[in-house]
Amino acid sequence: MIGDVHLLLTDSQGRVLFGRRANTGYEDGAYHLPSGHLEAGESVVAALVREAKEEIGVTIDPAAVGFAHIMHNSASGGRVAFFFRVELWEGEPSNMEPDKCDDLAWFDFEALSDRMIPYCREALHHIAADRRFSIYGW
């Protein structure tokens, strides 16, 4: 089973940062949270901290990571997606992967982009309703 981490980097206005996928061959043009796969021997929090640095250039103290949601997704035969909220970080978010992302944008939960990966949109609806667990696609 594949494990994914997703970052809800939240600013002082309550907006969440998204990147627009480009040149990946999967859902290009869709906005998605900074995210990535767990690596062998890595905790979900360590993976989130690593992905934040790699994708958007911010440094996150592991103590600042707050659990938001977990989703069991049927994609690829089964995935577990962990969603974490972070409100404090160091650095200015910037696009560190221009070969995979062509825009960074802040969105309110009430005004998300029309173009998002469906499982992520559903997870965000659960998070907004304070539901900590969901199943998608089974």
Rank of each mutant, 00 (worst) to 15 (best):
F84W: 15
R132M: 03
L33I: 01
D130G: 06
E27Q: 08
P118E: 15
S43T: 15
L38E: 06
E54R: 13
R15C: 01
S35T: 09
H37R: 12
H37S: 06
L9D: 03
P118W: 13
V5D: 11
F109R: 11
E110D: 15
G78C: 01
V86S: 12
M1E: 06
S74H: 14
A123E: 02
T59H: 11
L112D: 00
E51M: 04
G3D: 10
G14P: 09
A75Y: 13
V65D: 11
V5A: 14
E97M: 12
G57E: 05
D28Y: 03
S134Q: 11
L104I: 12
G29Y: 06
I70F: 11
A105F: 08
D130Y: 10
D108F: 05
A123T: 02
E122W: 03
A30S: 04
A129R: 15
A63M: 13
P62S: 10
D28E: 10
G78F: 06
F107V: 00
G91T: 14
H6D: 09
V44W: 03
I56E: 15
E110K: 13
H72I: 07
E92G: 10
G41R: 04
H6P: 03
E97Y: 06
W106C: 01
L8N: 07
A30P: 00
L17V: 03
R15M: 00
L104V: 09
I70R: 15
D11L: 00
P98I: 07
S74G: 08
P93E: 06
F82H: 14
L48G: 05
G19L: 11
D11E: 00
P93H: 06
V58E: 11
D114N: 08
F84R: 11
K100P: 02
I60H: 05
Q13K: 10
L88D: 10
Y31M: 02
D28R: 06
V16Q: 11
L124T: 12
G25S: 02
S94H: 14
G66N: 09
Y136I: 02
R79T: 12
R115L: 01
S43H: 14
G77I: 06
I2V: 14
F84I: 13
P98Y: 04
A81T: 05
D11V: 02
I127N: 08
G14Y: 05
E55Y: 11
A52R: 15
M71T: 09
D102M: 14
V45H: 08
A47N: 12
T24D: 07
L17F: 06
E87D: 04
F84H: 15
D130T: 06
D99N: 12
V44T: 10
E97Q: 13
G66T: 08
H69S: 00
R50D: 01
R50C: 04
V44I: 05
A111N: 01
H125F: 03
M71A: 11
R15F: 01
P34A: 09
G91S: 10
G77F: 04
R121C: 00
Y31C: 02
F109N: 04
L48H: 14
T10C: 14
I135L: 15
V44Q: 09
P34L: 01
M71L: 12
A128Y: 02
Y26P: 07
V65S: 04
L48E: 12
G77W: 05
G14K: 08
S12P: 01
A64K: 14
V49K: 05
E27A: 12
L7I: 07
H69I: 02
F82Q: 10
V49G: 01
G41F: 03
S113Y: 00
E122D: 01
